Computed example of a mutant assay.
Amino acid sequence: MPRKPPVIHATRLVDASRFLRVEQVDLEFSNGERRTYERLKGSGLGAVIIVPVRDAETVLLVREYGVGVNRYELGLPKGRLDHDETIEQGADRELKEEVGYGARELRVIGRLSLSPAYMTHETYVVLAQDLYPERLPGDEPEELEVVPWKFAELHKLLGREDVTEGRSIAALFMAREYLAGRFRPA
């Protein structure tokens, strides 16, 4: 069910952020060419994106507001890792907060970068199987809608206007190929 996006009351530029900072990097390439690049340096330990597999044919997606694009997006649950938390623990926590399920089996199947040309941030892709109901309070301002989707219908997500988040698209196809035995992490 479509929701009306939140009302934006103001926007402003900030010099400092609790999440990101800009770092200049002076480089010299093997041919002697020198350049200064700028990159966004994340704070924290990284992030996880979870592929919650309800059964052999079904993955659970969430519909969540994305302020960057000012609309609701359909994608996978994801979040930042907390201090003193393993990748698997962070994935299980985010799954419980955003989807209302825990997982008895969690497996890291890869890593994704957002934009390696100017960001240091990486996200771990975690396959979550053998789900069971359990909810933890999260930090989302509203409850997320959980949407079951068939793996056989992943191609239909590509044409949807509310599915544009590249990490979700990549992680879904990585998981599908992993489950089919065609992909194994290095």
Rank of each mutant, 00 (worst) to 15 (best):
F29Q: 02
E57H: 09
N31C: 14
R35A: 10
E98A: 10
A180Y: 06
R39G: 00
G90E: 05
R80P: 15
R63T: 13
A175V: 13
V22P: 02
R34C: 00
P185K: 06
F19K: 14
G110C: 05
Q89H: 10
L61Y: 15
G32P: 02
K156V: 13
G42L: 08
P77A: 05
V51R: 03
G79Q: 12
E88P: 00
A10W: 12
F151K: 09
T58G: 06
L131R: 01
L144N: 02
L40R: 08
E177M: 07
E33T: 06
G90H: 06
E73G: 00
E165S: 04
R184T: 14
S43W: 15
K96F: 02
E122V: 04
R176P: 13
K4M: 14
L157H: 03
R176E: 11
L95M: 08
L127K: 14
V14Q: 06
R135D: 12
T86F: 05
L114T: 15
R3M: 11
A128C: 09
R63E: 15
G44L: 09
K156Y: 15
G159Q: 05
I87C: 02
L158R: 08
V62A: 03
V147C: 06
G166K: 08
G166P: 14
R71L: 11
R167Q: 11
L61M: 12
H83T: 15
P116M: 11
A47E: 08
R63A: 12
R18N: 10
I87E: 04
P148C: 01
V147Y: 01
R182A: 13
L13F: 15
N70E: 11
A117T: 07
L74N: 01
G100Y: 13
A91M: 14
A10F: 09
R34E: 01
P5K: 09
A10Q: 08
L27W: 00
A180N: 04
T86V: 07
R63H: 06
I169C: 00
A117E: 03
E161L: 04
E73C: 00
D55H: 02
Y37V: 14
V59Y: 12
R39C: 00
L60A: 01
H155C: 10
V99F: 06
A180M: 10
E23K: 00
W149D: 05
M174I: 15
L154M: 04
S43T: 09
M119Q: 02
R176W: 12
G68K: 12
E165F: 00
Y124R: 12
L106C: 09
G44R: 11
N31S: 07
V25G: 01
R21T: 14
P52M: 06
L114D: 12
M174L: 13
Y37Q: 01
R160E: 12
L74Y: 14
